[in-house]
Amino acid sequence: SAFDTPWFNTQGNDFFNSLNKTKIPHVILTSETEDFDEETIQQWRDEGFDTAYVPMLNGGNEYINRVHTQGDNFGVGEYYAIVAFDSAATLILQAHQKPNHPKLVAIVAYYPPIIPSVNTKYPPGIRVLVHLAGTEVGVQRQTEVLGIQGKVKTTQKRLSPGPGYGEPLALSYPAYTYAGIQPGFAERDLDEYDPVAERLAFTRSLTTLRRAFRIEPTTIEVLRDDLVDYEASGRADKALAHIRPYAHVINGPTLTGGVGTKDLDTYYRSFFQPLPPSFRARLLSRTMGTDHICDEIFTSFTHSQEIPWLLPGIPATGKKVEVVMVSI
């Protein structure tokens, strides 16, 4: 074999995987309107994706061609994903059921009013994820008579509410329904915006795109631990360098914290610090997601000074204190 050489046989999986990885992960956002929610666009950019927006306008083949043109403009060897909303999501799902788009690696569809047949099989090279909302959705079905395909019919199907947010559906492609939530829940500039459903859906979308682009898992655990170390050691400037400008910290029991780097700078310097010299923390458990960490922490200290963020307004008692905290 031409590939049976000493050099070839010594190459590991990392080398071969690198041959099929895009240098820059591109995302085309698309919806019905001429412009789109800037916060959602920035959300994807913050995760390291190069983004472009393509409006649906009048739809049809002209719209699909504009989406593909935008994808082709990313350059030779560059791949892209499509994140589509509302009626644009329906058209995108309909247009990519055949393997004729080699640069497309993923489709995420937010609340399409109509979805393909529940038995639709998308090309292996395209990861598909669908988020549904509302009480029903139109499902397409190809009629067939004596082996001859007829017209495509759409039937309205009721969405099962399930016991909570984000229930999986038994379709041939990954899909979730968000009970009690209306279409538009993922766009911050709409009245239907729901932060809980949006956060859950975005985490699922982000996981899908990272797998599609073969992006290695982020060092979120290291970043989290570095941030905690900077906070505990009083290095507020280092802590602030690790967070985004709109980050927020809220201590539920005492409602202390801040929103944005200016408030958090004041919080870290004037409320969180100084910690008691005896303050100790022990990690009990850690649950990690694609873009968040939930820690269960055991803390102990001698109450040798006032601690505004934890025991506000209580002078030092000299007593030993033990508290179990949950940090997200």
Rank of each mutant, 00 (worst) to 15 (best):
A52Q: 02
F279I: 05
A88H: 01
P163M: 14
F298V: 14
E32H: 05
D237T: 13
E144A: 12
M56R: 07
A281D: 03
G125L: 07
Y176K: 01
A241C: 11
L132N: 02
P161T: 04
V324L: 11
I41E: 10
R127E: 12
F15I: 01
T256W: 09
V130M: 05
V326A: 00
F272V: 03
T69P: 01
L311D: 00
Q273R: 11
V27C: 07
A241M: 14
R269V: 14
I115Y: 06
W7H: 07
E136Q: 06
A239M: 05
Y165F: 08
F36S: 02
R211K: 07
V249A: 00
G48L: 14
S117M: 08
V228D: 13
E39F: 14
S1I: 01
T219F: 04
E62T: 06
L104C: 11
R286G: 06
V128D: 10
I107F: 09
A52Y: 12
N65P: 05
A84N: 01
G59Q: 03
H248G: 06
D189G: 03
H292T: 02
E39M: 15
D225H: 06
N9G: 03
W309Q: 03
D237M: 04
P6F: 15
Q142N: 09
N61G: 00
N65H: 09
T208C: 15
T207P: 02
H242S: 09
A89M: 02
L19E: 00
P113I: 11
Q273V: 03
G138L: 13
V27M: 05
T40M: 10
A236G: 10
A179E: 04
A197K: 10
E198F: 15
A89W: 04
V321I: 09
F272Y: 09
I64L: 06
R211S: 00
T218F: 08
V128N: 13
P183E: 04
D265W: 13
K153Y: 04
Y79A: 10
D237G: 04
Q42T: 13
T218Q: 12
P123S: 13
T203M: 05
Y230V: 11
I82S: 08
F49A: 05
T208W: 15
S304A: 09
Q182W: 05
L19G: 00
P25W: 06
A197F: 06
S205C: 07
D72W: 04
M325L: 12
P6E: 11
P277V: 04
G184E: 05
L200V: 08
I243Y: 09
E192N: 15
E221K: 05
V152C: 12
D263T: 09
L264N: 07
S18K: 04
F279N: 02
T299S: 11
P253Y: 12
T207D: 14
G48V: 12
S278W: 07
L129H: 08
W309A: 00
E62K: 06
G77C: 00
Q142F: 10
W309I: 09
Q43N: 10
R211H: 10
Y53R: 03
A281R: 10
I148V: 11
T207M: 12
T254L: 01
M56K: 00
Y80W: 15
L169H: 01
K319F: 04
Y122D: 06
M325W: 13
Q42I: 14
Q42L: 10
